[in-house]
Computed example of a mutant assay.
Amino acid sequence: MHASHVPPTAPRPLSVLEYLQRQLDGTLTKSDITHMRYPTAISQLLGFRIIAIGEGTASLQFEADAAIHGNQQGTVHGGLLCELADAAIGTAHSTLVRADESFTSIDLKANFLRPVWASQLRINAWASHRGRTVSRYRCDIQRGEDGMVVATFESVVMALRGDAALGR
């Protein structure tokens, strides 16, 4: 068969880790795909972005402002900090998930240490235990201006396989 008659092959899906690494280093092409949705809808809505990625780790950055993200006390809402931690943990865990798997958070424990009014936040998540089905994660959120930790989080994530992973 002449080369001009060879049908094009579908692009090979990248692992989430390789996809996000390419995104960060600027080598991601329009034809690159992965089995999960990146960028996520929530990251686009809130405006946080991935700034570092590794196997079982992720760092995000977010511009927090109590004028936009505030609670009744006038500080950045703790629920927003929980969302940022959950997003970082989910991103970290997605680097370990195969194309035929998915996952779900089982819990999220938050400890709020300091208030935030307006700050560029750095959200760092990492696996503290990687199991076949259940993994544990930790996450710290730091203020950009002084590096102080404003909240810490712990989460348990469960791998989903087979029928449990379909459509999730």
Score class of each variant (00 low, 15 high):
residue 2 H to Q: 10
residue 3 A to P: 15
residue 6 V to K: 14
residue 7 P to A: 02
residue 9 T to R: 05
residue 10 A to W: 03
residue 11 P to F: 00
residue 15 S to F: 10
residue 19 Y to R: 00
residue 19 Y to D: 01
residue 19 Y to S: 02
residue 20 L to D: 00
residue 20 L to K: 01
residue 22 R to I: 06
residue 22 R to M: 06
residue 22 R to Y: 05
residue 23 Q to H: 14
residue 25 D to R: 05
residue 26 G to F: 00
residue 27 T to R: 07
residue 28 L to G: 14
residue 28 L to R: 04
residue 32 D to K: 03
residue 32 D to M: 03
residue 33 I to F: 01
residue 36 M to Q: 02
residue 40 T to S: 09
residue 41 A to K: 14
residue 45 L to P: 03
residue 45 L to Y: 14
residue 45 L to C: 10
residue 46 L to N: 04
residue 47 G to W: 15
residue 48 F to K: 10
residue 50 I to W: 05
residue 53 I to V: 04
residue 53 I to T: 03
residue 55 E to L: 11
residue 56 G to E: 09
residue 57 T to C: 01
residue 58 A to I: 06
residue 59 S to H: 05
residue 59 S to E: 07
residue 60 L to Y: 08
residue 61 Q to A: 08
residue 62 F to G: 00
residue 64 A to N: 08
residue 65 D to A: 12
residue 67 A to W: 10
residue 68 I to F: 08
residue 69 H to Y: 13
residue 70 G to M: 08
residue 70 G to A: 11
residue 71 N to S: 06
residue 73 Q to H: 13
residue 74 G to H: 05
residue 74 G to W: 07
residue 75 T to Y: 12
residue 77 H to Q: 14
residue 78 G to F: 13
residue 78 G to M: 07
residue 79 G to N: 10
residue 79 G to E: 06
residue 80 L to G: 04
residue 81 L to P: 10
residue 83 E to S: 12
residue 85 A to L: 12
residue 85 A to F: 10
residue 86 D to L: 10
residue 89 I to S: 02
residue 90 G to L: 13
residue 92 A to N: 02
residue 93 H to Y: 14
residue 94 S to C: 03
residue 95 T to I: 06
residue 96 L to T: 01
residue 99 A to I: 05
residue 100 D to A: 03
residue 100 D to H: 04
residue 102 S to Y: 00
residue 103 F to N: 01
residue 104 T to G: 13
residue 105 S to C: 12
residue 108 L to A: 14
residue 109 K to N: 15
residue 110 A to V: 09
residue 110 A to W: 12
residue 110 A to H: 06
residue 111 N to R: 07
residue 111 N to Y: 06
residue 112 F to P: 13
residue 114 R to A: 09
residue 114 R to C: 11
residue 114 R to I: 02
residue 116 V to I: 15
residue 116 V to L: 09
residue 117 W to G: 04
residue 120 Q to G: 04
residue 122 R to V: 12
residue 122 R to E: 05
residue 124 N to W: 05
residue 126 W to D: 01
residue 127 A to I: 13
residue 127 A to R: 07
residue 129 H to E: 15
residue 133 T to G: 00
residue 134 V to M: 15
residue 134 V to P: 01
residue 138 R to Q: 08
residue 144 G to V: 06
residue 146 D to F: 02
residue 148 M to Y: 01
residue 151 A to L: 02
residue 151 A to F: 06
residue 152 T to I: 07
residue 153 F to W: 11
residue 153 F to T: 02
residue 155 S to A: 15
residue 156 V to L: 15
residue 156 V to Y: 12
residue 157 V to G: 00
residue 158 M to W: 06
residue 159 A to M: 14
residue 160 L to C: 11
residue 160 L to H: 07
residue 162 G to M: 10
residue 164 A to V: 06
residue 165 A to E: 03
residue 168 R to N: 10
residue 168 R to I: 07
